[in-house]
Amino acid sequence: MNDITPLQDQLRLVPLEHYVFLCLVLFSIGLTGVLLRRNLINVFLSLELMLNSVNLLAVSFSVYYNDPNGQAFVFFVMVVAAAEVAVGLAMLVMIYRNVHTVDINALNDLKW
């Protein structure tokens, strides 16, 4: 423990704030993507990006706090991401068969 490892070095050089900031930027980009795109594939990708930024955030907290809980939590985020993507893509394929487009606004029979 008394040796200065490369990890500790790096952690000292890059403060936690920078990780947090990176995650927030990624999250916001994902958010923008969800709002911006009407191609469903892109919307799904953006959602994935948001989940990923959360993963990164959890891991960096976990490492800086020296607590494995955060990393265990990331597993569950991955589980959910995988399940959600599977359902979403299946739904996408089904809808594509019905309407032959992936435009998010193709389905607007129902008004707000």
Binding site: L40, G88, M91, M94, I95, V99, L107, L110
Partner: peptide, 11 residues
């Protein structure tokens, strides 16, 4: 289609 849309929006 309405059901499809509902599912998609909900999702």
């Amino acid at each position: 289609l309405a059901s499809n849309e509902a599912g998609l929006k909900y999702y």
